[in-house]
Write a protein that binds this DNA or RNA. Structure first.
Lengths: 214, 214
DNA sequence: CAGCTCACATACACGCATGTCTGTATGTTA
DNA sequence: TAACATACAGACATGCGTGTATGTGAGCTG
């Protein structure tokens, strides 16, 4: 079944070629989307940066919209793999919300993190399928955060404040903004993300060493 | 010189016609830019929503870029008129930074506030004149905020933290994000903006009544 | 009121990006 | 190895949006 794995050899099985090409195109598209947005994204440049032509792109993806949707899905999956589990592993809602903020700041050190913000800004208010996909992901994230905020308030760990839904909206905006504006400015990105989130939730500033649970 | 002011009459002086048409086009362009962004902005729609055709638009503005630059300038002027003086009137740096955050949240209740965010996201990383204009305004704002942060830290009103420049970057992002994500959700927009900013600066939560200087 | 200028509309030309179609080389199967 | 399927390149056709050039009516000036 399996042939010898010689990574640099062009002679591979077709399924492998297909997957490899798809990944290359997806990554180039993600970079392009985060840099230029959807409307300004030129498919010939995407294919070219991936080492192919538009022929390959249209062979792997139905059209520009399909490509963008695939990128969104890919980014969402990598985000879930790298960030979401941090919240699930946290012992309580406050720790989860702070871990999420810090984890997202770390995630934003890769440029592809800009994709979600770029596309959301571009498609907010439209009824475009890509905008819908982005919006759905955001709504799910907000619902998750709102539940964490409610739980934290019920247990007394988070003081009272604006409704959980509004607070969660602000939380998403703040976490994303800090991540984007300070992308790569370690360690200030995580530090400032935690600070902003603590303030949003009405929590007092952390100690100087500042590591939650440390 | 001055003729009788009959606002509903179409018979006006040419300079007045010109100014009136320019304002209408500018406002339509601002709405269009905040909704669709620059690349997706169709000039025929702009002119149409203002009650004119592209002929009028190209008579008043050199090209699409010139129109966008005029919109940016117009938004900046209204922002300075409505928000900036709040900071100048504040008695100390902390009050200025909080007043700026609350004032911007109020300003964001108008939809045109989205213009700056939309264009910054769209042009970040490009070398487009519109992007440069937006970037310049943002840099000036950040420098202003960084100075306020430094002053507040020197006087002991703001505790130590990440460098003023990075903190100011985060401040801009946070204030803008809260304003956009909670546009019109009064009174939570101003409340959450202040909370986020206090957290960013390392200040403890305000009291429940929370009105700075109230 | 005659001639000029301005505000604006309509019609045309061009470029650019998407999507499709056809051709070719590389894998796969009998 | 012959016949077929797949991965990809290149050329073509179309639509859409900007910018320009021309035309028309309303205001200004002698």
């Amino acid at each position: 079944m399996t042939t010898a794995e010689t990574p640099e050899s062009p002679r591979r099985t077709q399924a492998d070629r297909r997957a490899r090409t798809r990944s290359a195109l997806l990554e180039a598209a993600a970079r392009g989307l985060s840099e230029y947005g959807y409307a300004n994204l030129v498919l010939e440049r995407v294919a070219s940066e991936a080492g192919y032509t538009r022929g390959a792109l249209y062979h792997l993806f139905a059209n520009k919209e399909d490509l963008a949707l695939a990128v969104v899905k890919w980014v969402e999956e990598t985000w879930n793999a790298e960030v979401r589990h941090l919240a699930d592993a946290a012992p309580d809602p406050v720790a989860a919300l702070i871990a999420l903020a810090r984890g997202h700041a770390v995630y934003c050190r890769r440029e592809v993190a800009r994709v979600m913000l770029t596309l959301r800004v571009e498609f907010t208010g439209q009824s475009h399928p890509v905008g819908r996909a982005i919006s759905d992901i955001g709504e799910e994230f907000i619902a998750h955060c709102a539940a964490l905020i409610s739980a934290g308030r019920s247990s007394g760990a988070i003081p009272a404040g604006p409704p959980p839904q509004e607070t969660a909206h602000a939380y998403l905006g703040v976490v994303e903004a800090v991540g984007i504006h300070l992308a790569g400015q370690a360690p200030y990105d995580t530090e400032l993300a935690e600070r902003a989130v603590r303030g949003l939730l009405g929590l007092p500033p952390a100690d100087q060493d500042g590591q939650a649970g440390g």
